[in-house]
Write a protein that binds this DNA or RNA. Sequence first.
DNA 1: GGCTTGGGTTTACGTCTGTAATCGAATTCA
DNA 2: TGAATTCGATTACAGACGTAAACCCAAGCC
Lengths: 122, 122
Amino acid sequence: MHITDAERKIMECLWQNHPATSTELGESLESATGWRQGTVKALLNRLLNKGAIEAERVGRGYRYSPAVSREHCVSEASQRFLARWFDGRLAPLVAHLSDHRQINRQELEEIKALIEELEDES
Amino acid sequence: MHITDAERKIMECLWQNHPATSTELGESLESATGWRQGTVKALLNRLLNKGAIEAERVGRGYRYSPAVSREHCVSEASQRFLARWFDGRLAPLVAHLSDHRQINRQELEEIKALIEELEDES
DNA sequence: GGCTTGGGTTTACGTCTGTAATCGAATTCA
DNA sequence: TGAATTCGATTACAGACGTAAACCCAAGCC
């Protein structure tokens, strides 16, 4: 299941709020991205074809819902990204970001606290 | 500067070992990816056009070298990835991977040690 | 029953990607 | 010097992507 970036925007809407009609989605996305309704509809169909969303007929139209979780997509994207650039590991990413001043002290602190918490609870 | 995945494979070769002739690259990549020489050459030209590599004429052929550092590309790719999925932040990625058992105890330990080291040295 | 209208479906189209064949120039070999 | 080989440049082409216009159908309105 590979979600493209335009498709991801649709999914973000649906993950946040579902089921939703194409009109609702169209309105959200028109203001957020400037896409026309037809664009949204076409993307919905691509997502349907690849099984990323489900449609349930309600009267004249459909209600769309995600068929894959955000968690699942995030996992796939993370694995792909880490595999490509960091040999599948996370530590080198942390090192890289900190070497290049792309992460601040506070966030590092937050991560450390998070790790400690994870260790405690297990 | 957006490097596609096929292009990235060429770049990885060049970052590791440059300058290199297209024949050398072709040989490395043929065994690693199964690409024909022509494929490699076409990708080299795309990379030249987008300024990601440089070519220096040597006799009949060229020597290619990276014009952008791996570091730079990694930074860009990391920013893009984190922005897409984690609101640009790293901590939620750590949380996600650990929640989904996609990172082991040992690597978390390694990251914690890394952070402590960074704090000490500054 | 025709006309409008709010969906939905199909088709389109330019760009990007991955992969390669083809063409052309240069070099080498007979 | 003509043929064969090498290497690079150009062109190709199918599939994915972003974006949208065109078309079609059911439901309500006059």
